[in-house]
């Protein structure tokens, strides 16, 4: 016969066991993610902040702690305004033209045609993302080569009778970095939007068809409203990704001609690793971190991501 006290004791033990289990689960399931986040995000940020207050230069030696790097950022660096302006054009242009709009067009068109053809075209558009970056840019370099051997020039000269070869790397470098990055970026939007479109209940389209809706009306009133959150996600994710990635630009134009395609992240790289100004590079990189966090928070608020990530409400019939 058990007394109430015993029952309470069992319950407590039970609770105690449950707490221990929860703690263990926390360590097992979230531990690795937390360790990775601390190692690869928190620690580098702390190191970056520390380095930005030093005079670490070409021989990796620190002789003093100083705020000189921040004075340079705000006072003496005249390239910075141009670099920030270019970064805005690059991020906004790539997002608006390719990562969201073109990704959306690809998703809508490839889901509107037969499944086999749709999968084929999606596969084709995934190729740039799947190719190694160096190989992808080598193909671009051949395509836009300023000689008659370049693919674009071959087409323009032979099919359209152009007299002299074009040098797109010198005459249109910003367009080139937007297009080359956009071709890769579009595929991610395409996949996410395709999945979302597939998730729209089929009967809604049938009902709309019965009501007399045309293709455009179906897209406007059924597809797009259902894609609101995927679009928000792709926009925020790709903005952050475009802000910090520069490898395709470095390989294609090296940030040139002059500073024409030196976006902010590449500018940090050029300052730190080409000129050996590591302290200054660290100070510039800190602003990139701050900008990244701010953009993420603004996006979170603006696109109401909290609602997207809340628990799904299960319908009870």
């Amino acid at each position: 016969m058990t007394t109430i006290t015993d029952e309470l004791a069992i319950e407590r033990r039970g609770r105690a066991g449950s707490v221990a289990r929860r703690r263990t689960n926390f360590v097992i399931f979230l531990g690795p993610a937390i360790v990775l986040t601390v190692l690869f995000f928190v620690v580098p940020v702390i190191i970056d902040i520390a380095v930005s207050f030093t005079d670490l230069s070409r021989s990796l030696r620190i002789s003093e702690f100083t705020t000189e790097q921040y004075e340079k950022v705000f006072r003496t660096d005249r390239r910075l305004s141009q670099v920030i302006g270019l970064t805005f054009i690059y991020v906004f242009g790539t997002l608006a033209i390719f990562n969201v709009t073109f990704g959306l067009i690809l998703a809508i068109t490839t889901t509107a045609i037969r499944n086999v053809s749709g999968s084929f075209f999606r596969g084709v558009w995934l190729l740039p993302r799947m190719s190694p970056s160096v190989l992808y840019i080598l193909l671009w370099l051949w395509a836009v080569s300023p000689t008659e051997a370049g693919l674009v020039n071959q087409v323009l000269m032979q099919a359209f009778g152009l007299d002299a070869p074009l040098d797109l790397l010198t005459s249109a470098p910003i367009a080139l970095i937007i297009i080359s990055n956009g071709f890769i970026g579009a595929s991610m939007g395409m996949i996410i939007f395709t999945a979302a479109i597939r998730g729209i209940p089929e009967h809604l389209f049938h009902a709309a068809a019965v009501d007399g809706a045309g293709t455009l009306a179906k897209v406007r009133f059924i597809t797009l409203p259902a894609l609101r959150w995927p679009i928000s996600f792709v926009t925020i994710y790709q903005t952050l990704s475009l802000l910090v990635s520069f490898e395709y630009i470095l390989l294609l134009t090296k940030g040139g001609p002059f500073y024409d395609t030196t976006v902010y992240a590449l500018y940090v790289y050029r300052r730190a690793f080409e000129s050996g100004q590591y302290g200054y590079g660290a100070a510039l990189a800190l602003f990139l971190i701050v900008i990244g966090v701010v953009v993420a928070l603004i996006g979170w608020r603006f696109f109401d991501m909290e609602r997207l990530l809340q628990r799904p409400r299960i319908e009870v019939h």
Binding site: R78, F258, D260, S275
Partner: peptide, 25 residues
Amino acid sequence: IQGIESGRLSAEQAADFVIEEASAT
């Protein structure tokens, strides 16, 4: 030199660019 050849700078601007960059860095 790259700035001049790619048409982004004039000779005068390139001289100013070198002086500004060198003085700052």
